Amino acid sequence: MRSKNGAGGRVSFIQAARRRQIIAAAIETVTAVGYGQASLARIAEHADISKSVISYHFANKDDLLEQVVVQVIDDWAAFMKPYLDAETTSAGRLAAYIRSRIAYMRDNQTRLVAVAEIIVNHRAPDGKPVFAERDAVPVADLVATLRAGQQAGEFRAFDPIVLAMTITQAIDGALTYWAEHPGTDLAAYGDELVTLFGLATEKTRGKP
Rank of each mutant, 00 (worst) to 15 (best):
A124I: 11
A124F: 08
A124K: 14
P125N: 11
P125M: 07
D126A: 07
D126I: 05
D126Q: 11
K128P: 11
K128I: 10
P129H: 09
P129G: 13
P129V: 12
P129S: 12
P129Q: 10
V130L: 08
V130N: 01
V130M: 06
V130D: 05
F131W: 09
F131T: 12
F131P: 09
F131M: 09
F131K: 14
F131R: 13
F131A: 12
A132H: 14
A132P: 06
A132R: 15
A132G: 09
E133R: 13
R134M: 14
R134W: 07
R134A: 15
D135R: 14
D135W: 08
A136N: 11
A136W: 06
A136Y: 07
A136D: 14
A136G: 09
V137M: 10
V137A: 10
V137T: 09
V137Y: 12
V137I: 12
V137H: 11
P138K: 11
P138W: 01
P138S: 11
P138M: 08
P138Y: 07
V139R: 08
V139M: 09
V139F: 02
V139Y: 01
A140N: 13
A140T: 15
A140F: 02
D141M: 06
L142Y: 05
L142W: 05
L142V: 07
L142M: 01
V143H: 09
V143Q: 08
V143G: 03
A144I: 03
A144F: 00
A144V: 00
T145D: 12
T145R: 05
T145P: 03
T145K: 05
T145F: 04
L146N: 07
L146R: 05
L146M: 05
L146S: 08
L146C: 07
R147N: 05
R147Q: 11
R147K: 15
R147H: 06
A148D: 02
A148Y: 07
A148E: 00
A148R: 01
A148W: 01
A148L: 01
G149H: 03
G149C: 00
G149N: 03
G149S: 02
G149A: 04
Q150Y: 07
Q150G: 08
Q150D: 05
Q150T: 08
Q150F: 03
Q151E: 08
Q151L: 00
Q151R: 12
Q151W: 02
Q151A: 14
Q151F: 02
A152V: 01
A152M: 00
A152D: 00
G153F: 08
G153E: 02
G153L: 07
G153N: 03
G153W: 04
G153K: 06
E154K: 11
E154S: 06
E154A: 07
E154C: 02
E154L: 01
F155T: 03
F155P: 04
F155N: 03
F155I: 00
F155Q: 02
R156T: 12
A157W: 04
A157Q: 13
A157D: 10
F158H: 08
F158E: 03
F158V: 04
F158S: 07
F158M: 01
D159V: 10
D159P: 09
D159K: 12
D159L: 04
D159W: 06
D159G: 09
P160V: 05
P160G: 09
P160A: 10
P160W: 00
P160D: 02
I161A: 14
V162E: 09
V162C: 04
V162P: 02
